[in-house]
Amino acid sequence: MADTFTVHLKIWRQDGPEQPGKLVDYTLDKVNEHMSFLEMLDVLNEEIVAEGKEEPIEFDYDCREGICGSCNLVINGRAHGPKDMTCTCQLHMRNFSDGDTIVIEPFRAKAFPVIKDLVVDRSAFDRIIEAGGYVSVKTGSAPDANSIPIDKTVADTAFDYATCIGCGACVAACPNSSASLFTGAKLAHLNRLPQGEPERKKRTVAMVEQMEEEGFGDCSNYAECEAVCPKGISISAIAEMRRNYVKATLAGTEA
């Protein structure tokens, strides 16, 4: 551990959903460039626990390999931090330098209430999925799926949208706190495949309605969501969602 350096942290601390929170200053001088951002917080928490004066900082994670979508921090004003197409858990301290001040805040949206410190409740996304992000028909096992001919480009595009891990960075970065990219990605994934086709219109309407019900804002086409998305999902998903919604409702065709 030869090359350690020091960072100054300003971390959002909040005891519970109803309590007011504030940024608290910490200085950590044992930072190694090979640490991930979450490991850096682990080290800080070890110090906090050893000191015994306050509770450790709560932050969310599960896989720590960029696939589950539970790590969600706003780092220096950017969801998931400075690096493109990277989750917080995949961000390494080599992206920071000695003496840096790093502000760490939770994802902020009315629909993502803070539970404690940096942990937010993202179950609003689950309810959007429950509203229609599934197929009701039995699609069989993997060999059955392979027996349905699907154009390669369609399958690839569906897969691109399916890479959404539901982390919520799109909401966190959107000035309007819109969930359009998440909802659009799920719709674009399911709607273009034959298994999802029968429920395309019903699904689109139900999921659009649910995202509004959850208190997410409107989309103003800032495209900031696309820039912060750790999977690089395109806002074309949002345009597609609108197209399907219009076909299902305004264009007056039956479900």
Binding site: K10, W12, L23, V74, N76, G77, R78, A79, P82, D84, V103, E105, A173, Y222, A223, E224, E226, A227, V228
Partner: peptide, 10 residues
């Protein structure tokens, strides 16, 4: 407290 755009395709 701090917010900035990520640039890129934004």
């Amino acid at each position: 407290e701090k917010y900035q755009s990520k640039g890129g395709s934004s």
